[in-house]
């Protein structure tokens, strides 16, 4: 039981009859909920965790096959929620974790009664055959994946420890790197492939829980059309168009995010 909680570096805080589970997206860890999650601690049991491969999760538990599809991540979520005896909880998922939450809810419908999907996208790549606009062409996603393979941006944070010889002086590496969102480059590449090549449009219709779609203004990763698509396909959902810009309203506009979730709940 505690194994799965350790693996995901689970933090439980707050108190309440219901539990809220916050799931981070690609590129970050549970830190990204630091200005949103505390706002619910007075009414809910609040659960924060890192996906396997991110943050302080157990990297050795990363399985290229299991974590080669969002279903695998969803199984992780189901396992850790069951370890916490969750029923009729609230799932708050950002970015790719919004869809991971939908898949988890379909695997174990008893877990969540409410779903908050922040910047969700069931498919990032446009699908001209069905007139679906995901926001990216297939070539652009390939460019991203190629880019990750030649990860210059990650160089300074991921490679610095190697160049400095992190075995000898780990404290030096710690000073040099940006302290959040550090990931193993291999796992980051794998997660990016899994995320940006996913297509879970057909999973939306089967969601039993009621859902809130939080859509930012000018979100490069999940454009407004995608948010509207998700809202249209979910059986029982609300769509909130936020003032916040970018892809991370939980960081750029935490108050607005909290208010929107509050209103939904």
């Amino acid at each position: 039981m505690s194994d799965v909680l350790d693996r995901h570096h689970v933090h439980v805080s707050g108190h309440g009859a219901r539990t809220m589970v916050f799931a981070h997206g690609f590129g970050c860890d549970q830190n990204m909920w630091r200005w949103v999650a505390p706002a619910f601690e007075d009414r809910f049991r609040v659960v924060l965790f890192d996906h396997i491969g991110a943050g302080r999760s157990d990297l050795s538990a990363f399985d290229h096959e299991r974590h080669g599809s969002l279903e695998g991540y969803a199984q992780d979520v189901v396992a850790l929620c069951r370890a916490l005896d969750l029923r009729d909880g609230v799932f708050v998922g950002h970015s790719v974790s919004a869809m991971i939450g939908v898949l988890a809810a379909r695997q174990a419908p008893e877990l969540f009664a409410d779903m908050v999907l922040v910047g969700p996208s069931p498919r990032y790549i446009d699908d001209p055959a069905t007139d679906y606009v995901g926001g990216f062409s297939a070539e652009q996603i390939e460019e991203l994946l190629d880019f990750l393979d030649n990860n210059h941006m990650g160089w300074s944070q991921n490679m610095a420890p190697v160049i400095m010889g992190n075995g000898d002086r780990p404290e030096l590496a710690e000073e040099l790197t940006n302290s959040f969102c550090r990931t193993d480059p291999d796992i980051a590449r794998h997660f990016a492939r899994t995320t940006f090549r996913s297509d879970n449009r057909d999973d939306l219709a089967g969601l039993a829980a009621r859902a809130l779609v939080l859509q930012c203004t000018d979100d490069v990763i999940a454009p407004e059309s995608v948010g509207r698509y998700v809202h249209a396909r979910l059986p029982d959902s609300q769509l909130v168009l936020m003032q916040a810009t970018g892809h991370c309203p939980n960081l750029s506009a935490p108050a607005e995010t909290v208010a929107a979730i509050d209103a939904f709940l």
Binding site: N31, M32, F136, F180, I221, G246, S252
Partner: peptide
């Protein structure tokens, strides 16, 4: 930024900037 940088910036460095 080019498309890849844009995605990486939005998913990694924009959150980092807000947090750090």
């Amino acid at each position: 930024l080019p498309i890849a940088g844009k995605i990486y910036y939005e998913t990694h460095f924009a959150p980092l900037l807000r947090m750090q």
